[in-house]
Amino acid sequence: MNNLIIEETKYTPSINFDTQKGVFELIGKSYPENTFDFYKPMMDLVEEYFDGEEQEITTINMEIIYFNSSSSKLFFDFFDLVEEAHNDGKTIEINWIYDEENDSALEAGEDFQEDFENLKFNLVKK
């Protein structure tokens, strides 16, 4: 299975999805012009990855400084895919990394944590 590497821009995060190691990283700001188009390659690969039996353990690290509402919706759909895989018996850990001075990023993480109670969703202070 391929890896996915997308460089960071002023308005989109860097995406680094190492399917061999089972490590997924998303770092930066997220307000693309067309959110669903931008994240489509990532969402497709995530789906393909969880459909297969590639890795025992998957770690997801997300450090999103700020994001627009369509990104928020997309992250929700992303965690929904992760939850499905979790329900299928996969071991997945999510680290939501935030700056301790950024209350909004913490709050966003807490909301996702509450929405996906079944997942191992850690709030990690930077």
Binding site: N68, S72, K73, D111
Partner: peptide
């Protein structure tokens, strides 16, 4: 506001970014 935001985000309504979906709640 927070509860409504999460409810709408979960429901998948106004899924596309164009148009006032959860934008004003954000």
């Amino acid at each position: 506001i927070k509860q409504e935001y999460r409810k709408l985000r979960r429901s998948g309504r106004d899924k596309h970014e164009c148009g006032a979906g959860i934008g004003f709640l954000e």
